[in-house]
Design a protein around this nucleic acid. Structure first.
Length: 302
DNA sequence: TATCCGTGGCA
DNA sequence: TTGCCAAGGAT
């Protein structure tokens, strides 16, 4: 096991990407913002938004002082705007409860809006050097192959995976800290979901999946439905709201598209969504607090 | 625990 | 072209 630790940690130090939130001197806030943006979103799409975000809101209290609408607009097309909503709420909580300092412990982080097990462990480890067990989709896949001999991890995380993740960590705190990010990076760059680059893998010879003859997945991943879903309609509505300073008449989203403003038409025309679905999607956004209904129309929440 | 929640690049 | 899937969280 110590050999595997050395091989992967050494590989990381020679092959890791130079990402701005990994650089020397970055604080908890920079790491926290990156972790929120990286939830289910590729690095290349996060980079420019993160740079803008940090320039505009270098501290939690800077974001907390702004209305939610500004966070939603700055989030742009990153997707899952509720992440921006929760990041804003977390910034408010950090400002009021922690004097503007991102908490260092996993437990305190975990209590913030939008911070789950992964994000709490990641911020505590990457930003503050705390010893945590980080388990994300990359690490789950590497562990499933390297130690489990399987092509893919189970569709949903099992308790046994967290136990194994703890078990396989280096004893030394510093090495364990490095191990977290190294395994994650290996999963992102080499041990990928589709067509892994096993020829470039530092632990090819130790891999249980290779030893087993690279067996196929024991299940077929269930695709993420998109076409015709409420999510698609919600996204289109949010795109319209981000572009409008003033409330957008509710009828714009519910009535026939003919005669609507250009922006609304462009955003909604390809959906072919029934009026009932558009109404349901809008109701969902209102319920989630991502949009607000007033007398003169729908707008982003302030 | 299964499902919902955006977006866009790529094989 | 279509489906896969990417540093998850909340319910």
């Amino acid at each position: 096991m110590q050999q595997i630790h050395h091989l992967i940690n050494d590989w990381y130090q020679k092959n890791s990407r130079d990402l701005p939130w990994r650089r020397e001197g970055v604080g908890g806030w920079e790491v926290m913002v990156s972790e929120f943006m990286l939830q289910q979103t590729p690095v290349v799409r996060v980079l420019p938004v993160w740079e803008q975000w940090m320039r505009r809101w270098p501290r939690p209290q800077d974001l907390a002082a702004e209305p939610l609408s500004e966070a939603l607009k700055a989030w742009g097309r990153l997707g899952y705007p509720r992440r921006a909503q929760r990041l804003h709420a977390a910034a408010v909580e950090i400002t009021t409860e922690y004097n503007g300092e991102v908490p260092r412990t996993e437990e305190a982080l975990r209590a913030l809006p939008g911070v789950g097990d992964y994000t709490a462990a990641a911020i505590a480890c990457f930003a503050f050097g705390e010893r945590t067990v980080v388990v994300d989709t990359n690490i789950r896949r590497v562990h499933a192959r390297l130690f489990g001999g399987m092509a893919l991890p189970e569709p949903s995380p099992r308790a046994s995976e967290f136990a194994r993740a703890r078990q396989v960590q280096p004893e030394d705190d510093g090495q364990a800290n490095l191990w977290n990010v190294s395994v994650m990076e290996l999963g992102a760059l080499v041990c990928t979901a589709r067509s892994p680059r096993c020829d470039a893998c530092p632990v090819f010879e130790q891999c249980a999946w290779i030893a087993a003859g690279q067996p196929a997945p024991h299940y077929t991943p269930r695709g993420q439905a998109w076409k015709g879903t409420d999510r698609q309609v919600r996204g289109a509505i949010m795109a319209v709201l981000r572009e409008h300073e003033h409330p957008v008449p509710q009828a714009s989203f519910l009535a026939d598209l003919a005669g609507q403003s250009h922006a609304t038409y462009v955003a909604l025309e390809k959906l072919q969504a029934e009026s009932a679905q558009r109404e349901r999607a809008l109701a969902g956004l209102l319920k989630d607090g991502l949009a607000v209904l007033e007398d003169d129309g729908v707008r982003l929440p302030s």
